[in-house]
Simulated scan of single mutants.
Amino acid sequence: MNVRAVSTRRRYLKITAGALAVGALALAFVLRSPSPVGHWNSAASEDRFLAAYDRAFEDLPNPAETLDIRTDYGVVRVYRFEGTGTSTHPLLLLPGRSSATPVWAANLPGLLTIGDVYTVDLLGEPGRSIQERPISSDEDQAAWLDQTLEALPTDQVHLVGLSIGGWTATNLAVHDSTHLATLTLIDPARTFADIPWGTAIRALPAAVPWLPKSWRDSFNSYTAGGAEVQDVPIADMIEAGMQGYSLKL
């Protein structure tokens, strides 16, 4: 290949790179939302998610109590499940991204043999918690969770966090561990290391709401170790949250 051909090829590559950059900026502009808090993209999206949430919730034991706790950042949905064990402190479970309380369906029967279990729908994520003010720092994230624990009829909890819930649990422990008896982390995101590049790349198509559902299903199956996600109530709930809810965290 002669020098002129190489120069032409480089020029075309620069033009292509520039076009891709402009396209990415245009996509970001189209997908932007002026709202400073997490919200549903449409009423239909919210209805679809809540219907999936309710279907998945049917696989849980009946909660002994449902609490809506007001914090400085919004209203946090908390469920209490009555256990058969004698643990001094109850467990409190934080779910992963775009999921909520129903994600613990398979775990609750065993955990209830330890004692009472509280579950939380993360504030600013798809679920029955309602974000009302911006959550813009690690301190904000710690504050709403600490205020939630402060409102419970127990002085301390065994805090358990899954994925981004693991990060949320650790973040609280770093800022204020007053209400924590112990901390248990399950695949905590961005806590001991950054998210692997392979996972980040796989997540990109799943983060664009108008791309096919199959792309989000593929990512959800990947993060679940290859588990089947078709016609699975919890997976349907998570996919509906990914597709219909705009995070502002």
Rank of each mutant, 00 (worst) to 15 (best):
L13R: 14
V229G: 06
E125P: 08
T113S: 08
S42I: 00
E150D: 13
E65Q: 15
A203F: 14
L67P: 02
S177W: 08
A224F: 13
G127D: 02
S42G: 12
A143C: 05
R10W: 09
V157T: 05
T223Q: 13
R48I: 01
L149K: 07
K14N: 15
S221E: 05
R48T: 15
L25P: 00
T8G: 03
E82C: 09
I130E: 13
S7Y: 11
T178M: 11
L172Q: 04
Q131L: 06
P34A: 12
P34H: 01
P209Q: 00
L27F: 06
L249C: 11
P153D: 05
S221W: 04
V37W: 07
L204D: 04
F57E: 14
A206R: 09
D194E: 15
G161R: 14
V103Q: 10
Y73D: 07
T199N: 07
D231I: 00
E150W: 03
A100H: 02
A17N: 08
G225P: 11
F57D: 15
I69D: 01
W215Q: 13
I135K: 04
I69M: 10
T8A: 13
S218F: 04
F29Q: 12
L152G: 08
L111C: 07
A193P: 06
L247S: 03
W40V: 02
I15C: 00
G165E: 11
A142S: 08
W40L: 09
H179S: 10
G244I: 09
T170M: 13
V22Y: 02
V103H: 11
R32Y: 11
L122F: 03
I130T: 14
T16E: 02
A151T: 08
W210Q: 03
L50T: 14
T113W: 03
G127P: 04
F29E: 11
